[in-house]
Simulated scan of single mutants.
Amino acid sequence: MGIPSLRLRASDAVELMDDPDCDPERLDRTYANFRFVNAVVSGWRGIYRREIRPELSRMTESTLLDIGSGGGDMARALARWAAGDGLRLTVTAIDPDPRAHAYATGLPPLPGLTFRRALSSELVAEGARFDFVVSNHVLHHLSAAQLGGLLVDSERLAAGRVLHGDIERSRFAYLGFGLGTWPFFGRSFIRDDGLTSIRRSFTAAELRAVLPRGWRVTQERPSRLVLRWAPQSASNSVEERAAAAPGGGATDA
């Protein structure tokens, strides 16, 4: 399998599923298959165990916002894990794409899980706050301005931790994903769009160069990046950041 140059981020590459006229059956199969792919590559089970579960309670309700939730597999997983541990967690999952929202809400409901077709900026305008703000595989979809807006929105929405997980662009990620998915997912967009996602993704150095104070990025396996923020780590006000951000902090995430 040929490997394209990954030296620079391919921010202009377009994923097939982002085409509003893409095959709806292939799109639904893509949403359905995300849970298998994310179970292997996303690392969220470990993040939940290390960074979310210790903050949850059997008595007191905690709240979590999943931004850009797509077909809802990660939101559903987080809700199931907490329930399985006997812990109280209410999950709100948002995505502006009507196709993703239709797929997610068409699945059997889970207690404590709500899907909304909304932008993070809309929840900011509502004054919403959550104990955790998370996203999975959203960062690589964003321009530099949108990334800045997402970070500002996340700070405004978070009463506690922010955790944004995504792929790190590398030859290992591209080759490993290409070979690992080659025999599978032929009737979905998983393989083609996954490779495009890797080309669109950031490296840790690229993110560190643009992150504001109070944010940090860690590299995790396999080829993962996690952006983290917590209120006590912020060294300048979100209002100052919002004024400096393009578009005043609003994001389409």
Score class of each variant (00 low, 15 high):
Ala77Phe: 14
Trp81Phe: 14
Gly84Lys: 11
Asp85Gln: 09
Asp85Asn: 03
Gly86Met: 02
Gly86Ser: 00
Leu89Ser: 08
Thr90Glu: 14
Thr90Ile: 02
Val91Gly: 08
Val91Glu: 06
Thr92Trp: 00
Thr92Val: 15
Ala93Arg: 06
Ile94Met: 04
Asp97Gln: 01
Pro98Gln: 02
Arg99Pro: 03
Ala100Pro: 01
Ala100Phe: 02
His101Met: 11
Ala102Trp: 01
Ala102Met: 09
Ala104Phe: 03
Ala104Trp: 00
Thr105His: 04
Leu107Met: 14
Leu107Phe: 08
Pro108Lys: 05
Pro108Leu: 01
Pro109Val: 12
Pro109Trp: 00
Leu110Pro: 04
Pro111Lys: 12
Pro111Ser: 13
Pro111Thr: 10
Gly112Ser: 04
Gly112Tyr: 07
Gly112Glu: 08
Gly112Asp: 04
Phe115Glu: 05
Arg117Val: 10
Ala118Ile: 04
Ala118Met: 03
Leu119Lys: 12
Ser121Arg: 13
Ser121Tyr: 06
Glu122Trp: 00
Leu123Ile: 11
Ala125Met: 02
Glu126Met: 09
Glu126Cys: 10
Gly127Thr: 11
Arg129Thr: 14
Arg129Asp: 04
Phe130Ser: 07
Asp131Glu: 13
Asp131Thr: 10
Asp131Trp: 04
Phe132Asn: 06
Val134Arg: 10
Val134Leu: 07
Val134Ile: 15
Ser135Phe: 07
Ser135Leu: 09
Leu139Met: 15
Leu139Tyr: 01
Leu139Val: 15
Ala144Lys: 00
Ala145Glu: 14
Gln146Gly: 15
Gln146Asn: 13
Gln146Ile: 07
Gly149Arg: 07
Gly149Asp: 00
Gly149Lys: 06
Gly149Glu: 03
Leu150Thr: 14
Val152Tyr: 02
Asp153Leu: 00
Ser154Pro: 01
Glu155Asp: 12
Glu155Ile: 13
Arg156Asn: 12
Gly160Cys: 07
Arg161Cys: 00
His164Asp: 05
Gly165Cys: 03
Ile167Val: 15
Glu168Gly: 12
Arg169Asn: 13
Arg169Tyr: 08
Ser170Cys: 11
Arg171Asp: 14
Phe172His: 12
Ala173Asn: 13
Ala173Cys: 05
Tyr174Glu: 08
Leu175Thr: 15
Gly176His: 12
Gly176Ser: 15
Leu179Cys: 11
Gly180Asn: 03
Thr181Trp: 01
Thr181Gly: 07
Thr181Tyr: 00
Trp182Cys: 07
Pro183Ser: 05
Phe184Pro: 12
Phe185His: 08
Gly186Pro: 12
Gly186Asn: 15
Gly186Ser: 13
Arg187Ser: 13
Arg187Ile: 05
Ser188Ile: 06
Phe189Thr: 02
Ile190His: 05
Ile190Trp: 08
Ile190Cys: 05
Asp192Ser: 15
Asp192Pro: 02
Asp193Gly: 13
Gly194Leu: 01
Leu195Arg: 10
Ser197Val: 03
Ile198Arg: 00
Ile198Pro: 06
Arg200Cys: 08
Ser201Leu: 05
Ser201Pro: 12
Thr203Cys: 06
Ala204Ile: 03
Glu206His: 00
Glu206Gln: 07
